[in-house]
Design a protein around this nucleic acid. Structure first.
Lengths: 359, 359
DNA sequence: GTGAAAGCGCTAACAT
DNA sequence: ATGTTAGCGCTTTCAC
């Protein structure tokens, strides 16, 4: 059926080995004339290597496994896209498995992937602390993107949440705010703690006394942001701005403020965190700190590929910085606001699709 | 390194062939006692087949390729999840490639996947009309999920948009509306035409005269919904309800209504289409027709697997129905409204994550 | 019902 | 610089 090395060997008159050496892209010395001939014939015959055979023999497959908790989780698709773009540039493909936050499923996924032809594994939004024996015994290179619990570990890429919180608070301070409320996420999450610390540190840097009254707990959900903001509004000396540890709680806070017949941002400014899709379509549009999701995917993949290539071993935890996206809820000058540029990919799609003739 | 058939053969005393026959799950006759022994030993030793070897030998890999335009597109992750869940239940894994709405990239993806060990290919949000010669010559089973252009073709799964529009309009009529505006999507999209037709047909079914004035063009984007609603509001005999062909335009319409100092749903009811993530967090919460994304993924995969298993050949176009999700913008009774049940997967996650002890 | 053996397409020693 | 050859781990005839 499909053309194989043997066919090309016959067609060119060279041996299978020589043909393989050319087509496998090794740096093995082959005379230029032979190389050229083989290449052109292979091209003409439409040769595509049988990856199964190659991987059986060489134990390399140019495929990496991605284990995600759920591909439908908000941060997962852009992280995966970052991974895939980097993989593609290097001739790799990815196998994706969902683990549903279930340690058993995850172990199973690891086992499945290891038995498959994958050269490495990337864990996305890794939520477990248990080390996987199977994983470690396999000696497959692996990276963790956006780990959620536990202390820093090797081979992981995480957002620099401390820095991001700093950005948000600094922006509010630059707008003249001195009493800034903070709505935190669950205390056992990395993200919550780092963002909280960033909030405190930035206040201190500006000599604004830290007031524990201004800090409210939340659980990432909108409803908790609503209640937290109600508490903040009930304070005798209520804040003029609120920084929420994620966009969902920020939105809840906005609703609470509006329900109290106050305006955002005129009466109370709000800044969120994550830059979720809805941030630019709610009203008022949400100022927020972007999670560098796509970038984290790329960074992790670069490191993984380097490990696969044997260029280096394990790496220390890598922190990636996101940026502040200024929109309407902070009350900043128009000039500072993000121009919501249309995603070039989406723009392409729209042009393409709208032009498509009738079929 | 990893345990193979030979190891199990040695450990049990049977031949490699027998062990293979048991472990490959064939229906080849093996005595129950042998089968049991082999199974238990394999389990104990943690045997996982080497897929590369298996696929080299048998030309089957229990892997399917998924070609998506962009994994970050809103509908793609749930479709992919539906595909993956169905695949997993059948012992399959998936390789995902992005094509960025680019025919060249797509052809390349097809070529890449075909040379790899994949038993079939699923196209998600397929936007091209050109048939791929490579694909057809490969004779690999394939399915199209949510094709966007062209006339119905075999092996495709699409949403039943006509039915969905019918649901939306019928609901508005049941709420007493007689003048219902419609904001359409681009005319060359399947979805637009089917939803438009559903709108017209349902009006007719209720003997409500069709008024072309009540139909406004849109391009799926929020801004176009805003303008369309402005036009509708400017009518001498303005509508009491608006049905928009997608949620983004519905949201734009809501903003236009609010900017005209009218209330949703008291003055004008609004129903969208798609049930995007933001529908349940905007204010008022959006009543909309759900795209059966997850289900379409599953349905397509079931058909693909049946084709791979040789159970049947090509299938005609399959339409999948979504349901109406009643929330706040239509003005329906509380009793009718969707209880926004928390996604069981997400709930699990939240419980798990919040309980996780400190590390 | 079970075992022996061939070979899938490729790569990498080893030879020349 | 090129050719010869031995498997990688598995499935599947073909014997028994």
């Amino acid at each position: 059926m499909s053309v194989k090395l043997e066919d090309i060997a016959k067609a060119t008159g060279f041996s299978i080995a020589t043909v393989s050496r050319v087509l496998a892209g090794t740096d093995y010395p082959v005379s230029p004339s032979v190389r050229e001939k083989v290449l052109s014939v292979a091209q003409a015959m439409g040769y595509k290597p049988n990856i199964a055979a190659r991987s059986l023999r060489s134990n390399r497959t140019n495929t990496v496994g991605i284990i995600v908790d759920d591909i439908m989780s908000p941060f997962v698709p852009p992280i995966v896209r970052g991974i895939q773009d980097c993989l593609r540039e290097n001739g790799f493909l990815s196998l994706i498995v969902n683990s549903d936050w279930d340690p058993d499923q995850e172990q199973d996924a690891i086992r499945t992937l290891i038995s498959r032809p994958v050269d490495g594994i990337i864990f996305v939004e890794y939520s477990h602390r248990v080390r996987s024996e199977i994983l470690e015994k396999s000696h497959k290179p692996h990276m963790f993107v956006h780990r959620i619990f536990g202390s820093p570990i090797k081979n992981s890429v995480v957002p620099d949440d401390h820095y991001g919180a700093t950005l948000a608070v600094r922006h509010l301070i630059s707008l003249g705010h001195q009493r800034i409320g903070y709505i935190n996420g669950p205390e056992n999450w990395h993200n919550s703690r780092a963002r909280y610390l960033g909030y405190q540190d930035e206040l201190e840097r500006h000599n604004i006394p830290f007031d524990p009254e201004l800090v409210q707990p939340g659980d990432w959900e909108m409803e908790s942001g609503y209640r937290a903001a109600q508490n903040l509004l009930a304070l005798r000396d209520r804040p003029t701005a609120i920084f929420a540890a994620n966009d969902l709680m920020a939105l809840g806070a906005i609703y609470a403020i509006q329900d109290a017949h106050l305006r955002v941002p005129e009466d109370i400014a709000v800044v969120g965190y994550d830059n979720r899709d809805f941030a630019k379509i709610v009203r008022p549009r949400l100022t927020t700190v972007a999670m560098p999701v796509y970038e984290m995917g790329r960074v992790a993949t670069e490191s993984l590929l380097a490990q696969i290539a044997g260029e280096h071993g394990e790496t220390e935890e890598i922190k990636v910085r996101g940026e502040l996206v200024i929109r309407d809820t902070c009350g900043a000058d128009e000039a500072l606001k993000a121009r919501e540029e249309i995603n070039p990919r989406t723009a392409f799609r729209r042009v393409l699709l709208n032009k498509q003739p009738e079929g």
